[in-house]
Write a protein that binds this DNA or RNA. Structure first.
Lengths: 192, 192, 192, 192
DNA sequence: CGATAAACGAGACGGTACGTCTGGTCTTGTG
DNA sequence: CACAAGACCAGACGTACCGTCTCGTTTATCG
């Protein structure tokens, strides 16, 4: 039989994170990063990587998951609106650094491959959305958000300005700007 | 002396648009597209391409400009809010087709190169934003939009849901969905 | 592991010999011959050639070795002087054809690269010189050649007129001319 | 009208000699030297070079001629044999330095182009041979060399060991070695 | 003296090749 | 039988030259 080598798996993931690391020699972009290089760096055969990951993007997504990257908690004890606001602000702050660049590059890669986009959404979006949707639902119950809207569309309105700024490097991702943006959005979402 | 050959310039731009074209043999993505291939297809030396364009992305941007891609007009005779809405809807519709995919790929490329992002914004964003900003300003004067906000931020709120849907292929870009989304945003932007 | 492909090796050597062949389409010179072309002709990746040969010249030398080019036997049963003469004459005759041109081009290439010269001498010169030196030694013992000279210098005097004519295409390389030249040289080498 | 520009001609020749110069940045070989580079270095259009020289080799030959390279005088007041010996020795000494390398490279280039070989012989060989032939004739008259031989063949025997050593970098080109070699050759050429 | 014709610099152009890199696949031998 | 090691074909990378070809711009002769 010969089971999958955990040692190789880890070596590959660690080589990947090391090559993407901001403090290293130049910190490669996702585009510059090559399977070839990762294999060399990890002391692993290229075939082993291809055996277990379908694409460079899939490997990078796994690397992110393994390294608990870009997780933001939601404070359950606050009023729903404020919990959402805190979440938005902390997400924006995470995105203003190196992890934001990586996230932007993953979104970029997703434009070239359906499967990558699907994988990306499954791994990052849906889990987070489930959490956030619960809070949105709570806000609807609290009467702070219109309850005649699709929940996903509400989430979209909350997130989209943050991703816009991330991808276009336009406007700030700091606390104040994100808070103001959130308030405007909420003004549009509250019941009339 | 030795003037640039218009013939070569056109051959290059046309070969590029042809290779990116949706109806052709597979319709290459921006990533798959190579300078090598464009040169071969255009019957042109690679050096000629490198002489005039600093990167593949720069060439593609020029190709877009040359082909009047993704231009949407603004109806000046409507009330400002309705002009904005029409603009948003027609932009979303353009983005729901092949041109949307190309636009998404250009945004993707911009994540890997500062210069590309700058070029991209200069060529597509700023011109459009100038137009839209005038309408936003008119809406402020008409009292339909809060006049205490930065105009760019207002534009951001109008655009960001569209780009979110474009990039994440989540939610629809059709007339109804875009209209609803726009209405929500406007609700947040109108004076209290 | 991953052993060298004998199939590729042969394809490369055969493509090389084919391209250099006198009967083919123009018969390329060593200078005109390109790694690119050989790879294309052999149906082989350029990298495979670069992996195993350090330069075009090294590849051509191997091609020669593989094809038993320019080997001339020495008749052991003749008196030493006559064996040497026969050898000189047959070498000159070989050099008067296509193989002479290739040899001249290899000498030419050697002027531009130390390693090529060394490789060339190791592969062609030294083996032949060992054979010839034995005969020269026999001639010295037979009293036909001065035995106070360095053997290499004796060999040099025998060979140099042939290479002179080869490289300068001056004078003939036929049996009579080479024989006469050899006799003159021998007159200078015999004991006084 | 419009006569050839002496200024350009000189700039080209000087750029060439400078690029080939041993003291400069790496001292390019004839092979590495490119028309492109010479033109750039000379501040001259490529076309101007192509207008006046048929090949790189032709240009280099002209450069040599212009710079009185590798000229060796013959002492008329010595006995013919000694004049020849002095000539051979001083030629070998010239060839043991940078000029020898250039000469070797010109011989190399000549292997790839008939016209270059012809030009090379016409510019360097024949003039020198006329001088040397006169001395050989004198040696014949003095009874020091067999007078039943073709003069060119005599010259060949005198020169060939020197070129052999130059091209194969085998054996020395110093005074003693060249002198010994010359003596051996002369022993073969003197009347019996 | 002014027309004109060649020579010139500048450099764009289509090509060809360079040597390196990566993508994926396949093979061989080890643990 | 998963793995490392790495060979293999394919093909793109960006650069360097090739030799040809406009371009204006001198520059000298000739009408």
């Amino acid at each position: 039989m010969a089971i999958r080598s955990e040692q190789s798996r880890l070596a590959i993931l660690q080589a990947t994170i090391r090559l993407l690391d901001e403090r290293e020699h130049g910190s490669m972009s996702v585009q510059q990063l090559s399977i070839e290089r990762i294999a060399r760096e990890a002391g692993v055969s290229k075939a082993t990587i291809y055996r277990w990951w379908s694409s460079k993007a899939a490997l990078i997504i796994d690397t992110f998951l393994e390294n608990h990257i870009t997780s933001t908690t939601i404070k359950e004890d606050l009023p729903a609106i404020e919990a959402l606001k805190e979440h938005a602000i902390s997400l924006a702050q995470v995105y203003s650094g190196h992890e934001g660049a990586l996230m932007a590059q993953l979104i970029a890669e997703s434009q070239y491959d359906e499967a990558t986009l699907a994988d990306f959404k499954k791994s990052f979006f849906l889990p987070r959305r489930e959490m956030i949707n619960a809070v949105i639902r709570r806000a609807m119950e609290e009467g702070a958000i219109r309850d005649d809207l699709d929940i996903n569309q509400v989430a979209e309105h909350i997130y989209s300005p943050i991703y816009f700024r991330l991808l276009f490097k336009e406007g700030s991702l700091d606390r104040d700007a994100t808070g103001l943006s959130f308030d405007i959005t909420m003004q549009g979402l509250k019941p009339s």
